[in-house]
């Protein structure tokens, strides 16, 4: 289930990248050929950027694509290294809390106040903020599941596998 959600969100992010690329390309082509354009491209691209960056967060966690420095820790005993992996996850869970709280407040206030972007279309502010909150919640849950799983592995006395995260690229291609 979780895996399906992660991949679906990653696909949505891929679609967002296609969409913002097409939007910019189309506005350039319209300008060159017809001296016309697409209103509020800047706002729409910025909103799509939120989707493109935030939705893959859970998949990034699952892929263990978080960048870490192992200069020192690689010399530690295996059990200590695994403790540090768990610690890193716990710090991540804590570091994301203020973001979740503020993200919730922002999304709620954008919906409540009816805030919008000034422009030719006066597009609403809530979609990007709601997407941000949504992507973050899924990411937090994914990280929690990973940390709990790592703790179990550790309790069983086994090593945590940080090398092979879920690979979303080689599944179908």
């Amino acid at each position: 289930m979780l895996r399906w959600v992660e991949r679906f969100l990653l696909d949505l992010a891929a679609a967002a990248i296609v969409a913002l690329g097409l939007l910019i390309t189309a506005s350039v082509l319209l300008r060159i050929t017809l001296n016309s354009g697409i209103p509020d491209t800047v706002v729409m691209v910025a909103e799509l950027m939120v989707a493109a960056i935030i939705l893959p967060l859970a998949a990034t966690i699952a892929a263990r694509a978080n960048i870490v420095v192992e200069v020192l820790s690689q010399h530690f005993p295996g059990r200590v290294q695994d403790c540090l992996v768990i610690l890193g996850g716990v710090i991540g869970l804590l570091a994301l809390l203020p973001l979740l709280w503020a993200g919730y407040r922002e999304a709620a206030s954008a919906i409540e106040s009816g805030g919008f972007f000034f422009g030719q279309l006066n597009l609403p502010k809530w979609p990007g903020r709601v997407l941000f909150l949504f992507g973050l919640i899924v990411c937090w849950v994914r990280l929690l599941v990973q940390v709990v799983a790592d703790m179990r592995t550790f309790a069983r006395g086994e090593r945590i596998d940080t090398e092979t995260g879920t690979n979303y690229m080689q599944e179908e291609a």
Binding site: R31, N35, G37, P39, V42, F118, Q120
Partner: peptide
């Protein structure tokens, strides 16, 4: 009309209404 204009805010929109092509 027909000019490619970098315009912002209500003034930019008003240029667009006069036939300018707004460029961001």
């Amino acid at each position: 009309e027909g000019l490619k204009v970098r315009g912002v805010g209500a003034y930019g929109n008003a240029f667009a209404d006069q036939g300018a092509n707004l460029v961001s």
